[in-house]
């Protein structure tokens, strides 16, 4: 008998009393009640609590906002599918490092030498301040939003849900998903929260009204 068979047999032996399979009481909230404005307000509050930078802007102000946030960056990586209008202001295109699609993949060394990254996002949960990336072309592969020390992330208000269950329903669970709630942090020393460890130490969120 293989190890697999032995373990499965042991599980069946352990369950020989045939325990009942209970119904799952899903009496918790499946949908939030907050309207669009409330969702944005809550999201901003949560992100600020996590010590992320937050800007809420109209669609046409996105490029200028990104430009300002990247002012100090010598270089930044962007996924191949990022809306080009968001970078239309860039005069020094040598700062931009495209990743994915026809551009191919940047090496980790190259990413490590890049100051910032700009991505869009898939879905965002207001209540917990959680931005979810799913690897779509405007978000790119996971490494690009991880290695550069500054992440500028654009969130569209139509992608903001009030609570988590709504957000998960909008996702394909088999895509590589990264849920981001603020910059990297640790509470490992005396349970005191310190923002900024291995992941990006600076997170700026641009919310489009």
């Amino acid at each position: 008998m293989s190890t697999r068979e032995q373990i499965l047999a042991a599980v069946r032996t352990a369950l020989k009393d045939a325990p009942a399979v209970p119904d799952i009481p899903r009496k918790y909230r499946l949908d939030g009640e907050a309207d669009a404005q409330q969702r944005i307000d809550v999201l901003v509050d949560r992100l600020e609590d996590y010590k992320a930078g937050v800007t809420v802007v109209d669609e046409d102000a996105v490029p200028a906002t990104i430009r300002d946030l990247l002012a100090g960056a010598g270089s930044y990586v962007v996924p191949a599918g990022l809306d080009p209008a968001w970078l239309a202001w860039e005069t020094d295109t040598s700062r931009i490092r495209y990743d994915g699609g026809a551009h191919g993949a940047r090496s980790v060394t190259e990413l490590d030498a890049t100051d910032a990254v700009v991505t869009a996002s898939a879905v965002t949960v207001a209540e917990s301040g959680t931005i979810i990336l799913d690897g779509s072309p405007d978000q790119g592969r996971r490494a690009i939003s991880l290695i550069p020390d500054h992440h500028v992330c654009v969130v569209r208000s139509r992608d903001v849900t009030a609570i988590l269950p709504e957000a998960l329903r909008r996702l394909d669970g088999t895509k590589p998903l990264t849920m981001i709630s603020g910059p990297s942090a640790t509470s490992d020393i005396e349970l005191e929260r310190v923002e900024g460890v291995h992941g990006p130490r600076r997170l700026d969120v641009v919310i489009i009204r």
């Binding site: 993949a105 895509k175 849920m179 709630s181 910059p183 992941g199």
Partner: peptide, 16 residues
Amino acid sequence: RMNPYTSLWTGVTEGD
């Protein structure tokens, strides 16, 4: 309210 990062992955994803 939420931990900073949660990673979810399924098998192998080409290029990621």
